[in-house]
Design a protein around this nucleic acid. Structure first.
Length: 634
RNA sequence: GCCACCGUAGCUCAGUCGGUAGAGCACCUCACUCGUAAUGAGGAUGUCUGCGGUUCGAUUCCGCACGGUGGCUCCA
């Protein structure tokens, strides 16, 4: 038979069938000890897989993307074996490889705790040191069910039954056999670096009505050095945590006595919000939006009419005024529709683009709250575009471009998803398809790649979601563009077309930043608190060298403020070194040194937070410098 | 909401195997008037998150509540 090595030689051998490992040896693959699997005709296989016809082979090295995933998956099997040895009676469920590591979900008489992890790690090391081979076996589903019945592994049986395959494969290493598609490492000794990181509860099959299992997470890398680097990176990322920086930079706080999910904005944080909101207003006006504002409380009857009462009630707060039930708005759309309906609309008026920095309240379940990222009271940069069906595509494109431009200003990388119809929803199948297609088309036309998120749409329509990542690489939904054919129907929105007849407009719900709170959370982590000048709550701080520089410092401060600079002064009787240090820790872009030299020559000496000094300059030059940065949004 | 962990001075944290607590920074006072990441000396600071229970005695053990963190589910 003839074997072809990808990016290598061709070799013909006599034998009719050999293992992939033997084949790679025949082909003199370098670094064979680091090979953990093989691609046979492009398909990932175990090294023990048989090679018995003319094939192309490609070794998979431990430190490749595929190699790491295989190793991480194998590590989860090793963990399952360790847990089964240490905790008799435990049942295994699923244990996949994930980004940087793996997890395994167990069903045990009690949940696992952090303190169980060292013991499990020890046991895993024993298994790894024993260098046990992973052995693959194929069998019929019936045989596999019998096998797992003997082991009392009813979750595995459920998986096999749901698979509905004729044959399945199982892998055994040491005392542990698991249902698994594979491939796996040749043996446990190939695992070079792992760490169990945390425990967590997780519902069986992600369904909160089913049992809560006990999940153990781990990370695993090709070598101890990379593992250490990864753990250090996480420690570094924690220094960028927005809750921590929010406190250090005096931006916001939360209070037990106020309640969960409510943010208190301090002067600097509030300034940051104000800058963003002001930016948003300018950008919206520029793009043909009109600013509107609706009330916080609206009668419950109206929420019934919109469908929110049936579909979103558990997230809403209600109250009673004069024996009349009211709901606090969780979304801003209702008032916008009433504005539209306040008079007759012609096709000539469309599209209407109503923009509101809308304060909403949502009763988020206590366990999901998280710093600024997930709160119960937040402000959306919300808009509703009401347009003719013909205008829909163009409007979606316009919003997409808006999102793209804004993300570029902040230099965010983002991921796009389309979410389709959820179970709990209103509207006809036809409208849903039409709306979903419009969203897809807009993304395709812009050549923007996206994922499909089945069943994750809003109850009234499908949506495009834009996701940003925080310091720990967790994804947060920010911008969203949602198509809606239903609300216009329910509120009987109409416009008079050229034909003199009333027609039904379409509505787009959309946000760009999403929630101002969440966006600021992501923004803090993105810049690690060192905001560009245009966003910095304090752009420059004056640092006097001695007390005799104070009067001059005050004069400079006054003219900088009059020049539109967000300036502050540190006129304390302290050493310059201390003032520099504190301004540095506050991550203020410019420290302006005011000493005798500056006083005599009538100017200032800026020090950047990078440590670099700019040459001595006049107040006016400095003001111009800042304004140039503002213009460029830097 | 579910699972795990956590809550000690304004902040970061130590401590008490049950006998009512400490450090650094910050704060206040005094001296120093100083040129690019911490000047020195002195001082004050706590219902040990809250409410119950066990106990002669609880910050420490137990339960509940409140708040936070990491996940699951849900979501901007």
């Amino acid at each position: 038979m003839k074997m072809h090595l990808i990016n290598g030689g061709v070799k013909e051998i006599e034998a009719a069938s050999i293992s992939a490992l033997e084949a790679l040896e025949e082909l003199h693959v370098a670094g064979l000890e680091r090979v953990v699997a093989v691609k046979i005709n492009g398909e990932l296989k175990d090294l023990s897989a048989r090679v018995d016809s003319d094939v192309s082979l490609e070794p998979v090295f431990l430190d490749s993307v595929d190699g790491l995933e295989i190793m991480r998956h194998s590590t989860s099997h090793v963990m399952a074996e360790a847990v089964k040895e240490l905790f008799p009676g435990v049942k295994v469920t699923i244990g996949p490889a994930i980004e940087n590591g793996f997890y395994y979900d167990f069903d045990y008489e009690r949940p696992f705790k952090e303190e169980d992890l060292p013991r499990i790690e020890e046991k895993m090391k024993e298994i790894i040191n024993a260098d046990l081979p992973f052995e693959r076996r194929e069998m019929t589903s019936r045989e596999a069910i019998t096998l797992f019945q003997r082991e009392g592994e009813n979750y595995k049986i459920e998986i096999i039954e749901d698979l509905g395959e004729e044959r399945v494969s199982v892998y055994t290493q040491g005392s542990f056999t698991d249902l698994c598609r594979g491939p796996h490492l040749p043996s446990t000794g190939k695992i070079k670096a792992f760490r169990l990181t945390k425990t967590a509860g997780a519902y069986w099959r992600g369904d909160e009505k089913r049992p809560m299992l006990s999940r153990i997470y781990g990370v695993a890398f090709a070598d101890p050095k990379t593992l250490k680097k990864h753990l250090q990176k996480i420690e570094e990322a924690k220094k960028r945590d927005h809750v921590r920086l929010g406190k250090e930079l005096d931006l916001f706080s939360t209070h037990e006595e106020i309640g969960s999910g409510m943010i208190v904005w301090h002067p600097k944080g509030c300034m940051l919000r104000h800058i963003l909101e002001d930016f948003e207003i300018q950008e919206h006006l520029r793009r043909g939006y009109e600013i509107v504002k609706g009330p916080l409380l609206l009668k419950t009857e109206l929420w019934q009419r919109s469908g929110h009462y049936d579909n979103y009630r558990e997230n809403m707060y209600f109250t009673e005024i004069d024996e009349q039930s009211y709901g606090i708005k969780p979304m801003n759309c209702l008032a916008h529709m009433l504005i539209y309906n306040s008079k007759m609309r012609s096709y000539r008026d469309l599209p209407k683009r109503y923009f509101e920095l809308g304060l909403v309240h949502r009763h988020e379940r206590s366990g999901v709250l998280h710093g600024l990222m997930r709160v119960r009271e937040f402000t959306q940069d919300d808009a509703h575009i009401i347009c003719t069906p013909d205008q829909l595509d163009g409007e979606i494109k316009g919003v997409l471009e808006f999102v793209r431009d804004v993300m570029e200003i902040f230099q965010f990388e983002y991921e796009l998803e389309i979410s389709t119809r959820p179970e709990k929803s209103i509207g006809s199948e036809e409208d849903w398809n039409r709306a979903t297609d419009a969203l897809k088309k807009a993304l395709d036309d812009h050549h923007m790649p996206y994922q499909i998120n089945e069943g994750d749409g809003a109850f009234y329509g499908p949506k495009i979601d834009v996701k940003l990542r925080d310091a720990l690489e967790r994804e947060w939904q920010c911008a969203t563009i949602q198509c809606d054919f239903t609300m216009p129907e329910r509120f009987d929105l109409s416009y008079v077309d050229k034909d003199g007849q009333k027609h039904r407009p379409v509505m787009i719900h959309r946000v760009i930043l999403g929630a101002v709170e969440r966006f600021i959370g992501v923004l803090i982590e993105h810049y690690a608190g060192a905001f560009p000048t245009w966003l910095s709550p304090v752009q420059a701080i004056l640092l006097t060298v001695t007390d005799r520089n104070i009067p001059y410092g005050e004069k400079v401060l006054k003219s900088l403020k009059e020049g539109g600079i967000r300036a502050d002064g540190d006129f304390r009787n302290e050493k310059l070194g201390l003032k520099v240090r504190e301004a540095q820790l506050q991550k203020i872009p410019y420290m302006l040194i005011i000493g005798d030299k500056e006083q005599e020559q009538k100017g200032l000496t800026p020090r950047l937070r990078t440590g670099e000094n700019l040459p001595f300059m006049t107040e006016k030059d400095f003001i111009d410098l800042i304004h140039e940065e503002l213009r460029q949004r830097r």
